[in-house]
Amino acid sequence: MARIIVVTSGKGGVGKTTTSAAIAMGLAKKGHKTAVIDFDVGLRNLDLIMGCERRVVYDFVNVINGEATLNQALIRDKNCNLLYILPASQTRDKDALSQEGVGKILDELKKDFKYIVCDSPAGIEKGAHLAMYFADDAFIVTNPEVSSVRDSDRMLGILSSKSRRAEQNEEPIREYLLLSRYAPDRVKLGEMLSVDDVQEILSLHLLGVIPESKSVLNASNSGMPVILDEKSDAGQAYADIVARYLGEERPHRFIDEKKGLFGMFFGGK
């Protein structure tokens, strides 16, 4: 049975597209046929992060309007043949997406794909609403920062009242916390909310912590999802997240400060 995952946050710039690209690639690398959809109509960016911007011919809105078939619009990833990207349209018409149209496309994708990752735009407007409406699972990407935590909580409220599952009284969407741009050294100094703080406020199941990492910008510069950078801390954090989501037990990492040379020689544990 296919599952629809929405990657959402409310606030912009917290790492939704980075996360969507990474987990979609991670799921596909684990052998699951996966589609990742950019819901940010008008501000398409997933294609850049996935490195397929020059191969976009048709988009999400073309498919909804019947101007292209789903197969024509889906772009097969260059690194993994189980991963497909459905790019957003660059149209400025914000009503280009309709609930009916999105529902139809998702139904069609469900026949062929194991996981469908919906990359939500920021905000709580139509695109964000439609990205989460049909979801089975929600990945809430949050930064350890006041406005991001507040917006995440608002998104939780919307997920539990405005989604299809909520409206039809089905089992609620499974919600997971992905805490990104985490800086353990700043947490230790009391300058940043800790994982425990954020979990206590949002009471969410923690799927993983992604450390603030140079590798994320390097990855987007080159159009390779960061999870493919297996040596990087952020890449490993996303690999853990995918494994945990698929039911593997993995201890949480990147929560504590990296020990410097001094710490390695003289540090306690």
Binding site: V146, R150, G157, V187, L193, I201
Partner: peptide, 24 residues
């Protein structure tokens, strides 16, 4: 300075807890 820094995260937590409880 250390103490004044230590309070900024706890201040954030306190403000968020009140706000989130109210909004919920």
């Amino acid at each position: 300075f250390r103490i004044s820094k230590a309070s900024s995260a706890s201040l954030a937590k306190e403000r968020l807890q009140i706000l989130v409880a109210h909004e919920r």
